[in-house]
Design a protein around this nucleic acid. Structure first.
Length: 622
RNA sequence: GCCAAUGUAGCUCAGCCUGGCUAGAGCAUUCGCCUUGUAAGCGAAAGGUCGUGGGUUCAGAUCCCGCCAUUGGCUCCA
């Protein structure tokens, strides 16, 4: 017997004509409409008997209980099988099934009729499933539910939402005064009550195009972006910066494959703990999937390490370009939520929970500092922390210390019992202009995967043990950082301030505008000198009015504009138009370079990623 | 994935409701003029499978259906 089971908002069917001689007699073939119903499309196959029918109906009842639906429609549907039973047997078995489900509100659509129908299926993960029930398989496979273990786990888990203040005090969300913590309120409602409201596109989408940073690539899959030269420059600088910081912290950079064999023994158990939301590739009989995180690559590698407790904590790091998650199409938004994204991912293998708890403090500081240097400070994000009740009771002070570092009240989710593989997880959530929350930095304490991946070290007593693993992304996805910078710029703009990038990320830091052609030579020498001190400078040599060239430099958010005419050519000083003030200043050449280098100190540098002369530059966007 | 809105030149958009002339504008591009002092100098030319596939019609950018994409809401975000 084959069953396709759908949890529906509604179904409407109309019997149109008899298809077979044996068809059920119905007096008045009218349109029937049912709401809030589970529809089971059923094909009875050759060899099915009443035990199969009984088994099938008990499975259907089982899953209906899970989704909390009490109404069932049995819908004979021959097209599910090419090995159908005789109509007479089929009708009997269907009747059996209906009788066996009399504790539900059960009905069936007429057998042997051609029917037209209109159906509205619900969107939740358990709404659709298919079953095959045969005589020998008392325990049939419910494919959809197999892959949805994690989702089921999540809906079943009991958790409590609280707010923890920097002094360690916890209050229920309802009792907390959010007057001075509006963004935390948004996050709290967002997470706990799932309440969101927006009705306009996020401003960064227009900006990412206008600033020639990134755009959609129609020839790829949705959520896979193209990055223009300016965008690539910004992204590459952020990537380099995060990597430098993680290495400074003690992470060792590795590189692992982007695709894995889903049937490889080390993959199976991990893989099955997650909903099926990845890109799959079939190649030479292998079922490959594209990685959705760097975890397994690093775990498979660490599995081969000969580690001693003296080596721990040991940290592996990879900047994945890319990680892939095949998010539902309706969930994709600009640079905020993608299907292919660049993720720094640092795992620390710790000898025990105590070491993990110490190490997580260090990584918390790292994450905070990385975001800060990227131009995102504590006022831009809200922290959420989740842990099991047991872990909280045993590690109160460590948890309170994290909250204290954040310096603001924090959203807390406390689980009655562990689910997935971690006992603690914190994250920083950026709240954008439209009240949308997205996670940036995060860290987790993983107590399962050391075992699952067979990662081992030898402890003080010469015993083999599995490490506790921390999963940290100090910045979150790089694309998401760009999204945050653009959203912040949009907010500045809306509130009357000038939007800008941090100077070290600006595609052009200094624009030189020669007044007339006769100053080109002077500008060439000047820019040569400027660029030797690691400053990105270009020359607008187009035949346009001075006003227009200044306007366009302003629209590109270029911080410093140098107009070069008679005066400058014959002077020791430069006339510098500083976008931050809008005023023109006179400054000696060396002081000017020093001012810029001060601001970009300690950050990575790369040269212009476009022709130096604007006349040589194609127009990408307007 | 579900519901809704949107998709017209490289970009931003008008035209669609109420079908009918050669599908328009601004910016960008090219050419010419102008030779510039801190946020848009002037003129001309070129540029279009009207997202895509089907249907209705004498006639479709315009009406109907399917699909794709984007955005919003739902769901989701390991």
């Amino acid at each position: 017997m084959r069953i396709l089971q759908l949890h529906c908002d509604s179904i409407e069917y109309t019997p149109t004509k008899k298809e077979i001689k044996l068809a059920e007699d119905i007096e008045n073939p009218q349109t029937q409409r049912l709401e809030e119903v589970v529809v089971a499309f059923v094909a009875i196959e050759d060899g099915d008997d009443s035990s199969v029918a009984q088994n099938a109906i008990s499975q259907i009842k089982n899953s209906m209980e899970k989704i909390g639906c009490k109404k069932l429609l049995l819908y004979p549907y021959a097209h599910l099988s090419s090995n159908l039973a005789k109509p007479s047997i089929a009708m009997t078995l269907l009747k059996d099934m209906e009788n066996n489900a009399s504790d539900l509100e059960v009905s069936h659509s007429p057998f042997g009729w051609t029917k037209s129908y209109k159906i509205q299926v619900k969107g939740h993960p358990l709404a659709e499933s298919s079953k095959v029930v045969t005589k020998d398989s008392t325990d049939s496979k419910d494919e959809e539910e197999m892959t949805s273990e994690a989702l089921k786990g999540e809906s079943k888990i009991r958790s409590y939402w609280k707010i923890m203040s920097p002094d360690g005090a916890m209050k229920n969300i309802a009792d907390f005064d959010f007057t001075n913590n509006k963004k935390l309120e948004i996050l709290a409602k967002y997470e706990s009550a799932k309440q969101r409201r927006v009705d306009e596109p996020p401003p960064h989408v227009a900006l990412m195009k206008k600033m020639a940073i990134a755009d959609y690539e129609p020839a790829s899959d949705s959520g896979n972006m193209r990055f223009f030269p300016n965008g690539r420059l910004i992204k590459s600088l952020i990537e380099r910066y995060v990597t430098d910081r993680v290495k400074e912290y003690g992470g060792y950079e590795v590189e692992t494959p982007i695709m894995y064999d889903s049937e490889h023994p080390s993959m199976v158990s991990y893989f099955n703990r997650f909903p099926a939301r990845q890109y799959n590739i079939n190649s030479e009989g292998k079922k490959l999937f594209l990685r959705f995180a760097a975890c397994f690559g690093q775990f498979l590698m660490a599995n081969q390490f000969q580690m001693s407790y003296k080596n721990l904590p040991y940290k592996l790091y990879e900047l994945t370009r890319y990680s892939f998650r095949r998010e539902q199409s309706g969930e994709l938004v600009g640079l905020r939520r993608l299907r292919a994204f660049t993720m720094p991912d640092c795992h620390a293998f710790c000898k025990d929970l105590d070491q993990a708890v110490d190490e997580i403090q260090v990584r918390f500081d790292l994450s905070q500092s990385v975001l800060n240097e990227l131009g995102i400070d504590e006022s831009d994000y809200e922290m959420a922390i989740r842990f099991t009740e047991d872990f909280y009771n045993e590690n109160k002070s460590a948890i309170e210390n994290l909250v204290k570092k954040h310096g603001k009240p924090v959203l807390v989710e406390m689980w009655k019992e562990k689910f997935f593989y971690f006992v603690l997880k914190w994250e920083f959530n950026f709240i954008d202009n439209l009240g949308k929350a997205s996670a940036l930095s995060t860290d987790q304490i993983d107590v399962e995967n050391g075992d699952r991946y067979g990662i081992e070290f030898v402890d003080e007593n010469n015993n083999m043990r599995h490490p506790v693993i921390l999963h940290n992304s100090p910045s979150g996805a790089i694309e998401r950082i760009i999204y945050v910078l653009l959203e912040k710029a949009a907010k500045d703009s809306k509130e009357g301030r000038k939007p800008q990038f941090p100077l070290w990320l600006a595609p052009t830091q200094v624009r030189v505008i020669p007044l007339k052609e006769e100053f080109y030579g002077f500008c060439e020498i000047l820019t040569e000198k400027i660029s030797t001190t690691n400053i990105r400078v270009d020359i607008d040599d187009r035949n346009e009015s001075i006003g227009k060239r200044i306007r366009e430099a302003e629209k590109e958010w270029i911080r410093y504009i140098l107009v070069i005419g008679e005066k400058e050519a014959n002077s020791e000083n430069l006339s510098i138009r500083d976008r931050q003030t809008g005023n023109v200043r006179e400054l000696p050449f060396d002081d000017f370079l020093k001012e810029i280098n001060e601001q970009t100190k300690g950050k990575p540098f790369t040269g212009l990623n476009l022709p130096k002369y604007l006349s040589k530059r194609p127009q990408l966007m307007v």
